[in-house]
Design a protein around this nucleic acid. Structure first.
Ligand SMILES: NC(=O)c1ccc[n+]([C@@H]2O[C@H](COP(=O)([O-])OP(=O)(O)OC[C@H]3O[C@@H](n4cnc5c(N)ncnc54)[C@H](O)[C@@H]3O)[C@@H](O)[C@H]2O)c1
Ligand SMILES: NC(=O)c1ccc[n+]([C@@H]2O[C@H](COP(=O)([O-])OP(=O)(O)OC[C@H]3O[C@@H](n4cnc5c(N)ncnc54)[C@H](O)[C@@H]3O)[C@@H](O)[C@H]2O)c1
Lengths: 212, 212
DNA sequence: ATTATTTTGAGATATATTTCACAAAATAGC
DNA sequence: GCTATTTTGTGAAATATATCTCAAAATAAT
């Protein structure tokens, strides 16, 4: 079964909310509760769930524990996913120090950098020189990589990742990586996000001016 | 004129590529060049451009300088956009130290944090205590804010931002902010992005197994 | 000057995504 | 047990987004 892009994004969001609800002691939830929390319509929630084969109880809503299990299955949350990061600058360090991934079953296992000053092979999560990345990926069967190097280094670093066995991950560099099928990278371009937001802010302002 | 969400995102991407091309001395570009660089189809580029009222020359392609001017107009790049950040932890510091926004006409003018240790009212971009944020936004007519505080503080901090005059920005906290019309926040949820990527990686793997 | 080639521009078509609308099921109240 | 109420589940309709196709324009070649 193949699900839509958007549906999977929302699935992950639903799951985050549900885990919090469950931790608070809640046992069931209505589509309208979830829709409020995630910022979509109730119909969207029900449509998504129906697509995922997640069933509720008419009048009784959905059983949180039940649907969390189903979601974990769909998202492949049965095993911890090991992730590496290339580039230990601003973004790379922020990610490697973030405590929030662990409880999502995502473990950052190592960082890599070309700058010897950044290397730190002691401590909790070790930072190695970039020329050790290929072997590390191979030896530890890493499949997920994060690109946090400057744009001009991104493609080269990514190519090494792929040749070593990386199958996907995130790219923070403001370029579009070239890759073959069989590899899935998602771009996070903060600059573009900001520009886009500012555009829609301006558009909204103009619209308001027209109405008044 | 109202443009689609996706088109504006791509517009910002096209613009990034075009600025690089122009810096390299290129004067014109074909839809297929741009589509390669941004990872879309040439038809998509032309459709977007036609929607934006950006015209090219049949056989000669598009004049980079020309269309950059047009894009700047659409994206409101005539003036520098001042931005503040709430939360000077991992993500907040990464953003405030990033040098790449300036050349996009985006200026991070201040950071704010509840932790007195993080406050640093000397230096290039100053970091103030969060209780100075309201006045700062008011006094400096700031309209764009970035939320980089923990999830449980995000809504409260955002409400202060809005009451002081913020009209939009980015939210890195993994929650959906409640807001009225007239305000546009874009969520950047790294955890969700990673989960989604991993899902599609697994889906791709399963598919490959079937084919082989 | 004529012909061949390239590339845009846009209507038509296809696909993806969201919302609507309401019957059917489950529960609660009396 | 019967009735009223709530909420799901899902086709159908609406909207949004992307691709296809090809005539027309611009240029290059001969
Ligand atoms: N920091 C931000 O807020 C921000 C915002 C938007 C986009 N980005 C993008 O994210 C990426 C990282 O940004 P940053 O601010 O962390 O940059 P940074 O300069 O702080 O860090 C980059 C790190 O990569 C290392 N590096 C350089 N070449 C390398 C190579 N070939 N192999 C391994 N490591 C190498 C550098 O030594 C450095 O430590 C950049 O592409 C940037 O454009 C960052
Ligand atoms: N760092 C990451 O890689 C990452 C990844 C995904 C999501 N996030 C999200 O981004 C946000 C920031 O993450 P982080 O890693 O930078 O966290 P962090 O804990 O490093 O930083 C948070 C900062 O906010 C400050 N703060 C707390 N309450 C505040 C308040 N009421 N007003 C002002 N400041 C306050 C803290 O003092 C701290 O400096 C969080 O919501 C987190 O879930 C971060």
């Amino acid at each position: 079964m193949k699900y839509g892009n958007r549906s999977i994004i929302r699935l992950s969001q639903y799951r985050n909310v549900l885990k919090r609800l469950y931790a608070l002691g809640f046992l069931k939830v209505f589509s309208s509760n979830l829709s409020d929390a995630v910022g979509v319509t109730p119909a969207q929630v029900r449509k998504d769930f129906s697509q995922f084969g997640i069933a509720g109880n008419k009048k009784g809503g959905y059983d949180i524990n039940d649907i969390l299990k189903k979601m974990d299955g769909i998202l492949g949350k049965d095993k911890v996913q090991k992730v590496i990061i290339a580039g230990m600058g601003n973004i790379g360090s922020a990610l490697i120090h973030y405590k929030g991934f662990e409880k999502e079953g995502i473990e950052i296992v190592a960082g890599f950098d070309a700058d010897p000053v950044k290397v730190k092979e002691t401590g909790n999560v070790k930072i190695y020189h970039i020329n050790k990345m290929y072997d590390f990926i191979r030896d530890n069967n890493i499949e997920v990589g994060i690109i946090a190097v400057p744009d001009n280094a991104a493609q080269a670093v990514f190519d090494i990742m792929v040749s070593a066995g990386i199958k996907g991950g995130l790219n923070f560099a403001p370029i579009t990586l070239k890759m073959d099928q069989g590899c899935i990278m998602r771009n996070i371009n903060v600059g573009v996000e900001l520009e886009t937001t500012i555009y829609f802010m301006n558009a909204l302002k103009k619209q308001d001016e027209l109405c008044s």
